[in-house]
Amino acid sequence: MKLITVSGPPSSGKTSVVIRALEHLKAQGQRAGVVKFDCVSTLDETRYKASGIPVKVGLSGHICPDHFFVSNLFQCYQWGRGQGFDFLFTETAGLCNRCAPHIRNILAVCVIDNLSGMNTPWKIGPMLRLADLVVIAKSDLVSQAEKEVFLFRTKQVNPRGVIIHVNGLTGQGSAELASLFFKAKETAGVEETKLRSSMPAAVCSYCLGQTTISDQFQMGNIKRMDLSEGNEGVQGEGL
């Protein structure tokens, strides 16, 4: 079974693009399933089911969805094996723009879209920077020049990755995407695999359910803005 992780900002087109590509995989007799990770709720389950794709949903609730993803990956892998899938996809929405649930030796896909704005590639961080394959959706909604600038900035952030344009509505580019999925390596297991970047240890009292805003209640991993004269609020970064 090939495990493929699909990430990307909310509403960037992940589900649409995966469903389109799976149509091509299915046409070639491949069996594929999806595990969708989200925070609070998701409608993706219905959409995958409507396309005849077996799907499981994991809602992380009060836990960071990416941490949740990592702690459940093994189980999901076992489920996929049990079902006899040729492909197992995971779909996660990168919510904090910092975590990247990309795993070494497992095809990491990041889906971003042209509508999100010209500076978005710069804002996404490791999720985009460390992906093997970057899919850019919604090119139909912008001008050719914007599409080219967006591609350029994406490539600036991730010069090694393969970048392709796929339209989640019409399916343009999805056959090519499917051919890249075919090229993915078999995943022998996920035990002992390694993340490509560390996940931030964001545990503070608010992570643990605190709701009162006050100095007194702030504990754990606290980081303060520097608002002193001549500083723009970013953390002083040495040098």
């Binding site: 704005g117 914007e146 591609l151």
Partner: peptide, 17 residues
Amino acid sequence: SDQRFVAQLSQNMNFIV
């Protein structure tokens, strides 16, 4: 992926910037 062979000028010319 440096190069795209085809530039597409679609009918509905939208700008978002």
